[in-house]
Amino acid sequence: MAQIDSSYTHRDGETRGIGYRRWVIAQATLTACLKVKGMRWVVWSCWIYAFLQGIFLFGFGQLMDQDSAVYAFITENLGFFKVIGPMFQGWAEENPRIAIGMTYNLFFYIFTGAIVSSLTLSLVALGMAIPRLITSDLSSRAITIYSSKAVSRFDYCLGKFGGVLLLLTLTWLGPTLVTWMMGNLMAPKISFFWHTAPALLHSVAFVGSGMVILGLMALGVSAMTSSPRTATSIWVGVLLLGVVLSGIGMGSKNYWLQYLSFWFDLELLQRWIFDIGGDFRELDTEFPGITEGGLFQQMKNRLAVTANNVAAAISCLSLLGGAALLTLYKKVKPE
């Protein structure tokens, strides 16, 4: 028998660049996350939620069309709408920026960040995904092998971050975009697209920033330990701590405690990006006094945000992101 096996020929083909390798890590991370039991249910829930929002926006659009079945149904069944319906329509045709643009902006403010929203579902998804991000590589020690490949620690982390962003795109950004598209595609007029464009931009800006900060936090937590249970517990702890700090700080002397809650910081960021207060001011200019008193006044008070508030929130979110990056720097290595 020959001592040396001469039948084997080694591949000597072209190898692809670092962008491709990062993409491979991102893809593998997403695949691993989607294999987690229950993750597909969460993703499906996000899309069902988006679909329901789309139906809601469809209904809103139909109110702008006198010939629509929805309009006919509502005017037949709600007596007061027979009176205000035509008035609303006439007003909406004269003020589409307010009637359509502002309404969409408010809707998307609620859709993207409310307690029952894609944000909450995304946090659940991240909680389930955390053991599969970096923790599993640390516990299996496979990180020793990955770090011996032609991928730097930065590339590894970037790939993992890409995987988290893909997951959040599935649970948060994607459903938001599809909701907006559904609402506009089923709207009675094409003009809905440009009247609602600001709402889309605000949503993308907020969801995009939220994805970056939550993605970093998830990676940081995942890199903290090689025990999947501990990693998940830390994530749940971070979420609960956010709720508790926000609750303690609200209305107390120690109001600054709220800024230690990423929930609160994200909410301030969202208020600033969507600028609902600005919408109310515009409404006031067009229709003086309309926002004073009643539900409008409550909303105005609730959504008021100052530049200092936002600066503090962004600083705190940056600190959280910085802490996550520091954890990655310290922990993602085979030593």
Partner: peptide, 25 residues
């Protein structure tokens, strides 16, 4: 490596394909 550095839940072929792609193939 000397360590038993393999992810137990993955299949051999699947894992190696991923690593091959990670190597630029």
């Amino acid at each position: 490596p000397e360590d038993d550095a393999l992810p137990d839940r993955l299949r051999a072929r699947t894992w190696l394909r991923g690593l091959a792609m990670l190597s630029g193939i």
